[in-house]
């Protein structure tokens, strides 16, 4: 069977390597940069940020709290301190603007593992995948919130690979690499995009958080789409693209509105035709208005 060329090859040819990897490079810089900031203290004694993703203090003034873990603690019966609440407010507001699952693709360290798994899967040309519903993650999210209610303990944090990996890198990994290896193998051999796209309750939480977020990927020039399928190939949540990219006939706007879009921007990178851009969720109204304005013009022509 003839293998499809690597997605993005055409874009690299027409746009150049940098433009065809712009968002990917920025994303890696963000992921490693955040880890680096946290590591600067323990490794170099420069304390810009203290703590980890659960709660951190930047320059001794800016608190940032993971809303998912704090919610679990509150359900377990905790009354958090003001710092923690301010931290939650900041984080929630930011993700409600830039997109909840921006956490997944720009911050979360497990994304490095699952992206690597995805790469490996593509390299080994593994097509088979156990069908796990993409909705499973919301069940998992429910579970993480019910368990502290029942047990009075933050049970999910016993095994949460997201916090465990980040904390592990900053404070010492222990046996957590076993869980990460497990996710890596799970994503390669068991289920495509299995962890981030189907199971992870942290991602599910952030997707709900960002369900009305402002910043969105917009298939602005969808009429230029040449059906090369590269965006579907690289997208970790491919189901989110279709309505925006192919919905013109059905009157669906070009904004990718699904809250499971992680705003990773990889579709923007790999599109040789530059169909996608970052924009706002309100671009739909604009574009529909533009289309209705254009139409009489087109008709007249």
């Amino acid at each position: 069977m003839a293998r499809k060329p690597r997605p993005g090859k055409e874009a690299t040819r027409t746009k150049g390597f940098l433009r065809a990897h712009k968002w990917l490079i920025l994303r890696r810089l963000s992921q490693f940069g955040i880890l680096g900031l946290f590591l600067l203290g323990p490794l170099a004694g420069i304390w810009v940020v203290k703590g980890n993703l659960a709660y951190s203090e930047t320059l001794e003034v800016l608190p940032l709290t993971d809303p998912h873990v704090l919610l679990q603690a509150v359900l377990a019966g905790v009354v958090p301190h003001l710092d923690a609440l301010i931290g939650v407010a900041i984080v929630v507001v930011v993700y409600m603007i830039i997109g909840g699952r921006v956490f997944c693709s720009w911050v979360c360290p497990v994304n490095l593992v699952t992206d690597l798994a995805c790469c490996t899967r593509r390299a080994l040309d593994i097509r088979s995948s156990t069908l796990i519903s993409r909705n499973s993650r919301y069940w998992m999210l429910g579970l993480t919130l019910v368990l502290p209610l029942v047990t009075g303990s933050i049970v999910w944090e016993l095994v949460n690979p997201v916090s465990m990996m980040f904390r592990g890198i900053v404070f010492g990994l222990g046996m957590a690499w076993v869980i990460l290896l497990g996710i890596f193998l799970f994503d390669i051999f068991v289920s495509k995009e299995g962890w981030c796209g189907r199971v992870c309750p942290v991602g599910a939480f952030y997707s709900l958080l960002g369900s009305k977020s402002l910043v969105r990927v917009v298939a602005e020039d969808r009429d230029k789409c040449d059906d090369c399928m590269d965006c579907f190939e690289v997208c970790p949540e491919e189901q989110v693209i279709r309505p925006a990219l192919k919905g013109a006939d059905k009157g669906i706007g070009p904004v990718i509105l699904s809250s499971n879009c992680t705003n990773c921007g990889r579709c923007i990178d790999v599109c040789a035709e530059d169909v996608f851009h970052f924009g706002s969720r309100f671009a739909n109204e604009k574009s529909i208005a533009a289309e209705t304005k254009e139409r009489p013009f087109v008709d007249a022509a």
């Binding site: 709660y55 873990v69 704090l70 603690a73 303990s153 933050i154 404070f171």
Partner: peptide
């Protein structure tokens, strides 16, 4: 201990301070 496990969010700030 039982309450502690429901309250500690594992941020490690006590370790740092």
């Amino acid at each position: 201990e039982e309450e502690f496990l429901g309250a500690c969010i594992r941020c490690g700030l006590c370790v740092r301070d």
